[in-house]
């Protein structure tokens, strides 16, 4: 079972690499921001898998904090950085 959890965690980590493509390409600021939001979700899943794999329950708290605070970053983006970029692509 531990091997399955670690394989899944590794798979999700490689998925982050795919998401990185969207962060780099954009083209809009929102694309980049949403990609990091996806990173946050993936990180939550990885941490939950690692918590099971290593039998280390405190890692679930780390995942909980990630899940809660990702929303705050998203709100900060929408309220502060979004209107400047709404019309088109950010400086490419």
């Amino acid at each position: 079972m531990q091997i399955l959890y670690l394989v899944l965690a590794l798979f999700l980590l490689l998925n982050l690499g795919a998401g990185m493509w969207r962060v780099l390409r954009g083209p809009t600021a929102a694309d980049r921001m949403l990609a990091t939001q996806l990173f946050g979700t993936t990180a939550v899943a990885v941490l939950l898998l690692l918590a099971q794999a290593y039998g280390n329950p405190p890692l679930r708290d780390v995942a909980l904090v990630f899940a809660l605070l990702a929303a705050v970053t998203a709100v900060a983006f929408v309220r502060r950085a979004w209107p400047d970029q709404e019309t088109g692509h950010d400086s490419e």
Binding site: D61, V62, V65, F66, L69, T73
Partner: peptide, 27 residues
């Protein structure tokens, strides 16, 4: 920040990972 928190987890330092998650990746 997200990856760094995972690195702290890999180093078996959940306390630091929690701080990194709360401050580095969040605030």
């Amino acid at each position: 920040g997200l990856l760094l928190a995972m690195a702290w987890v890999s180093l078996d330092a959940p306390d630091v990972a929690l701080a990194e998650a709360a401050i580095g990746a969040g605030l």
